[in-house]
Design a protein around this nucleic acid. Structure first.
Lengths: 114, 114
DNA sequence: TTGCGATAGTTCCAAAACGAAACTTAGGAG
DNA sequence: CTCCTAAGTTTCGTTTTGGAACTATCGCAA
């Protein structure tokens, strides 16, 4: 079965994951909750490639989780903000954060992390 | 940046996602919470390929989230059960489920869902 | 004692997704 | 003009995924 076919699954967990259950999307949303909204900010913060970021942002906007907003009229520039639907993912991010804090300690960074 | 480099990220959300943030892993865990434990059960329930399932189970065991348990001595058979660490992911699954229930309605269930 | 079914994988290959880096588009500043 | 910023897009080689067949092991029945 393909991942994309999951959006009609009987299980609400599966349906949720069909949007946010890939390798970067939740990290973008984390950044949104941290107050970031611009393309270059997401790139810098998450370390993902522009390629993938652009694709994920498109999907999140289509899904109604982010809104693409013009923030400059001179050189037309756009950024991304959470919709209400998107904001309601906050509890999910928080539970993942709490679990990580408790169960995924940072492994000592290779000695030379000055 | 490669996904695998995320396990040492400063952000606990990112560290969590380095284990459960791919396409299928949380679905396996959902099944565990539903009481499933065997390879063939996961296959049938989630629709993922044996290939991927085997790989994900291995990672979950390494991460201490599932335990591989022998349940038959005749033909040696193994199944997978949540560790304490794994059980503590329950809140995360529940928040994802709740969000899905509210925001991801089933798009018309193929007419013949008797 | 050979063949069959159940269960947990492994292997193979083509297709899709990803990662890195260069390129594009458009206005502003010097 | 030419460079700079910012949001993408394109290209191309590598990795991951999906699908399907194959393997291994034991229990059971003929």
């Amino acid at each position: 079965m393909k991942w994309s076919e999951l959006s009609d699954n009987w299980c609400p967990v599966a349906r949720t994951l069909s949007i946010v259950g890939d390798r970067w999307t939740l990290l973008i949303l984390r950044d949104c909750f941290l107050g970031l909204s611009r393309f270059e900010q997401f790139i810098e913060s998450s370390g993902m490639t522009r390629h993938i970021l652009a694709e994920r942002l498109k999907r999140l906007v289509e899904a109604g989780i982010l809104e693409r907003r013009k923030y400059s009229d001179g050189p037309k520039r756009y950024d991304y903000v959470l919709t209400e639907k998107g904001q309601e993912l906050a509890p999910a991010l928080m539970t993942l954060r709490d679990w990580g804090k408790k169960h995924m300690p940072v492994r000592r960074a290779t000695s030379a992390d000055t």
